[in-house]
Write a protein that binds this DNA or RNA. Sequence first.
DNA 1: TATATCATGTAATCGGTTACATGATTAA
DNA 2: TTAATCATGTAACCGATTACATGATATA
Lengths: 201, 201
Amino acid sequence: MERVEAYPITYGVLGLLAFWGPMSGYDVKRVFDHTLAPMWGAAHSQIYKELRRMKELGWVEMEREEQESRPDRKVYTITEKGKTALHEWQSQPAAVFQLRDEMLLKVLFGTFAASGDLAQNLRTAIADHEMRLLSYRQSSLFIPTRGEWRHGDKRHNPYAVESEEDPYFGLIARFAIDFEKMYLNWLYEVLKFVEDKQAPQ
Amino acid sequence: MERVEAYPITYGVLGLLAFWGPMSGYDVKRVFDHTLAPMWGAAHSQIYKELRRMKELGWVEMEREEQESRPDRKVYTITEKGKTALHEWQSQPAAVFQLRDEMLLKVLFGTFAASGDLAQNLRTAIADHEMRLLSYRQSSLFIPTRGEWRHGDKRHNPYAVESEEDPYFGLIARFAIDFEKMYLNWLYEVLKFVEDKQAPQ
DNA sequence: TATATCATGTAATCGGTTACATGATTAA
DNA sequence: TTAATCATGTAACCGATTACATGATATA
């Protein structure tokens, strides 16, 4: 990927603005954590940077809302130019695919672990992923309706097709659930193998 | 993860040195691409940096081999201190788990794609992952024996347990294959959904 | 009454990516 | 003979993470 003006995370944030309408960085982060997190994690500071970047590009407009005893809210709205950019992004093939999983590394180099250590870490990973699976199942990633689910004043979302159900969020939810199920199966198998090794029948 | 002296990729490279014995950065990169790539990708420049970092930490030693008409080979060997570090890493729970997948983002925001664009990109992704699956199956991640598979002069690997089969590489290979199968299933389903939508019966 | 969490951001740092070098072989 | 690929690295840049701020409200 040669240097370009925007990156997957940029379009992720842009997509959220397109879908849910005007939001502050803080709002974006909240929505983000319930929708994009499983496929592209980001710290809130990163989201703020993307918003600034998109403002430079003219993809969003910013309006400052003054508040007492709190930093001003900077509310961002997608522009026509932003919509075009989102559209164009969808016409290009996906470039980035990465898995970064420290647990897999520890399994790979299991030979260098003291007896018991690997099993212990596997159990921690299992607990973590069981939790993820549960949360994906419960919320099904919030399967949201456009323009809804924004706190504070409900300003109109000009890009929203009112009350149209979106099928894609459901598909992503299924992916997240399928992934966690597969991963957990694997983790349990590895754990069994490691435990059997420690205490052979 | 607060700032520490080393990161998952550091231990990844360290593990490779522990497993296969002394190597140059170039060698590490080659081994890396066939073993760690599915769980933690890295550019070669990153690997060189990790080697330099570990040298600072005293985890590896470097020996320069002069060559004509090519940059000198810098051959790195794990030290006792390095072995200890690897051991200690294995006693800590895994901290990083991340998926960064642009295709998932494009599916999530499928509403904003022009007709046909999403299907096209899905087909590209399918081709890509079919290829990955094939390569994982064929090589089974090389399921290697310690101390072997190094090009050039075969110097003795002091950390190798001669000809002992390692079971962990096989487990990781299975993970990679399971993942790709699950992912491909999902991609095909999404593609079907998108195609049906374009041309309803 | 201390400690989270809410709410809202900026700044510094660093892992990771892209770009830059350079000459020898091998392949189209 | 032109272009990949092999072989081996360094340097610059930037996405992403960690740290820094700050005051209100809710919770233990």
